[in-house]
Design a binder for these strands. Structure first.
Lengths: 236, 236
DNA sequence: CGCTAATATTTGTCTAGTTGTATATTAACT
DNA sequence: AGTTAATATACAACTAGACAAATATTAGCG
């Protein structure tokens, strides 16, 4: 199981840049030394990539002068992946559509701390998927304090929206206190849920939502499918 | 009653020699072949020992070059992730930068659109790494309109900070119009730069910075090493 | 200005060395 | 028998350095 060679990815990068007409026919590419610095490799590795592109007629090199663009690739797929855009400031939440789990259990130390509960105090866990059409966009786990919302588990039996569930349980409005974002690799089970290959990229968001008095009401973790979702942050 | 494996004792020997500063940070160890000869074992047995030390962060091997002693982590504590606040990310950026490339070329359609330029208008590209101590945290590519900043390429020859470079080119203040976040997989060259394994997770941030009049001055893309960085967003 | 010579760049080629990976085999211990 | 550690071999991928050959740039000079 050999990984893709570095020179292959360098060649692909340069090819896409030529295809995008960042360098057009007749242009001189940066020197081999400059490209080696850019990609952080030895000059010979760059030469292998350039040689590949030259073999395919995209480049032509002239000793002493430089490497020049001959022609852009004729059939280069420029199909840009369309991603679902979600503004994190506005609602910061995708509509939940598919329930995976609703259960009551003791809180972990992390959850207890986030929700300002005593260690081990019981919480309601709501796990599900957010879909767009039939493609899952995100996988989420929301945790609520059972003491404050004794009936919320039943609410989720008929309602999928977290916002609506909180409203029906007496929280008219809530705001996001903090969001933490990290990139992660999909575990096999997550890949299964999100219909990705395992090893694909996920964006993990951990958020704490508080009510009007600043009391935490939800601890939510969401894994967005990296290739389908973009989070946008626009300052007010 | 299992005897201690040979590779374990080799690893212990090498570790003690590193601890005794027989080899210090940045030093190249003897080649695997030389070590194999020294310990009177097969090269693979040495490799197992080296692999163990590499896993524990004491060594780092570069194909074709050798095995090097890694400097102990300075700024960012291992196991803990560096957190970046949105406000910090907007105004003050990441410090210490390493230049990879400064280049003038035609803009891509995406860049032209973001910077509100005519298609293919020339831009200055500044690519580099943001370091925390000796660990790279992020890989960035910043694009500036050449027409407005004809001398900015030269500015970057002496200055690494984007903020400072813009200031020296007549932009006293700028704000972030929009940020888009996605999770991606590291390409082989990105993995090299960020010292990650091929296929690790990155958080990609695409931002557009505008001047006081709302005119775009920079199109910046940053890839954060997912396992080292957490982006925290707190509403104002 | 225009030409020439010297100098600096830049690609081409060659040799050598080093780590990464794959496969197969042997010895020892359970 | 089956598992594990270690060996043996071979090749691929990448680095390192040096030098030659072609071109570009610069300096000097008329």
């Amino acid at each position: 199981m050999t990984r893709t060679a570095i020179w292959t990815s360098i060649a692909a990068t340069l090819e896409s840049e030529i295809a995008a007409e960042l360098y057009t026919a007749g242009d001189k590419l940066p020197t081999e030394a400059a490209l080696a610095a850019r990609f952080g490799v030895n000059r010979h590795t760059v030469r292998r990539a350039l040689g590949d592109l030259a073999d395919r007629g995209l480049l032509r090199s002239r000793r002493g002068a430089g490497v020049f663009v001959e022609a852009p690739p004729t059939d280069y797929p420029i199909g840009r992946r369309v991603r679902f855009h979600q503004n994190i400031a506005a609602s910061g939440r995708l509509p939940a559509k598919e329930r995976l789990r609703i259960e009551t259990r003791a809180s972990s130390t992390l959850e207890a701390e986030a929700l300002e509960l005593a260690a081990g105090e019981r919480v309601v866990v709501y796990e599900g998927l957010s879909m767009s059409g039939n493609a899952p966009l995100a996988h989420f786990i929301s945790v609520f304090p059972l003491g404050r919302f004794p009936d919320i588990a039943e609410t989720f039996a008929t309602i999928t929206s977290v916002t609506e569930a909180l409203r029906q349980n007496g929280v008219a409005d809530f705001t996001r206190r903090e969001t933490r974002l990290t990139a992660e690799i999909a575990s096999p089970t997550q890949a299964l849920h999100l219909r990705l290959r395992d090893g694909d990229a996920l964006m993990k968001s951990v958020a704490i939502n508080v009510d009007a008095h600043g009391v935490p009401v939800e601890h939510g973790t969401t894994w967005f499918a990296g290739e389908r979702v973009t989070l946008t942050i626009t300052p007010e």
